[in-house]
Simulated scan of single mutants.
Amino acid sequence: MPATPDPVRWRGVHHLALVTTDMDATVRFWHGVLDARLVATLAVPAFRHYFFEVGPGSTIAFFEYTDQELERFAKPAGVPYAKASQFDHLSLHLPDEDALHRLRDRLKAHGCEVTDVIDHGFLRSIYFSDPNGIALEASWWTTDPTGRPADHADGRLFADPDPVPAVRELRENGALAHTVATRLVDGVIEDLRREGVELDRPSG
């Protein structure tokens, strides 16, 4: 069931753009270890941009910038870190428990550290990292909430005992009372100003 009367026709994630400082190692891990086929590449003087297929029409893409020093960090999934304020981890979808165990065995065979299977109730997962320190998860739905009407009163899937107001509105009224507006560049400009960088604001 669509969220609005005039639905956006989503078809999954086209690509999630991440950053690497070593595209060769990234190809060897994502294509070689994870078996996410390298399906497209492009390059301009400023960067490379490579795409790995994780499902029909869905890719994970990496930028490798030219002559740009980047401060790297690594963090586990679900652990807050000030430098990762907008991204925590990426979870890739698997079809069933067997596929989850086979991926875990494959990671271990390639010398990659990986957790045991973690049961989260409506999904089960394993956790690992890529060579860039990006926290990764592979999951399968034990109870798949997608592709069917959502029951916001179903405690198996909506388990927050004190949900945010938007969820209460959906549960009680079946719709949101209001949405929020966003701006295109102001947040970026504010972040840069904190680092001592001033940009000319576009006119108009």
Rank of each mutant, 00 (worst) to 15 (best):
Y81S: 04
Y81A: 09
A82I: 05
A82P: 05
A84I: 00
Q86F: 08
Q86S: 09
D88T: 05
D88R: 02
D88Y: 03
D88E: 11
S91H: 09
S91T: 10
L94T: 05
L94F: 00
P95A: 05
E97F: 00
D98N: 06
D98Y: 00
A99W: 15
L100H: 13
L100N: 12
L100S: 14
R102D: 10
R102H: 07
R104P: 01
D105M: 03
L107M: 11
L107H: 05
A109K: 10
H110F: 14
H110V: 00
G111W: 04
G111M: 06
E113W: 00
E113M: 02
V114P: 07
V114L: 08
T115V: 04
D116Y: 07
V117K: 05
H120A: 03
G121F: 11
G121R: 15
F122T: 07
F122R: 13
L123G: 02
R124E: 14
S125E: 05
Y127S: 08
F128N: 06
D130W: 14
P131D: 03
G133M: 08
A135K: 07
A135M: 06
L136T: 09
L136Y: 12
L136A: 01
E137I: 11
E137T: 01
A138I: 01
A138T: 09
W141K: 02
D144M: 04
G147C: 07
R148W: 03
R148E: 15
D154G: 05
D154R: 14
G155N: 04
L157F: 13
F158Q: 06
A159H: 13
D160A: 11
D160L: 08
P161L: 04
P161G: 06
P161A: 03
D162R: 10
D162Q: 06
V164D: 06
V164N: 09
V164K: 11
V167Q: 13
L170C: 11
R171W: 08
E172S: 05
N173C: 02
G174Q: 08
A175Q: 14
L176W: 14
A177I: 05
H178C: 11
V180G: 01
A181K: 07
L184P: 02
V185N: 13
V185Q: 03
V185T: 14
V185D: 06
G187W: 11
V188A: 12
V188C: 10
E190S: 07
E190A: 12
D191P: 00
L192F: 07
R193M: 00
R194G: 09
G196R: 09
G196L: 02
G196C: 01
E198D: 13
E198F: 01
L199N: 00
D200Q: 02
R201F: 00
R201L: 09
P202W: 03
P202D: 03
S203L: 09
S203E: 15
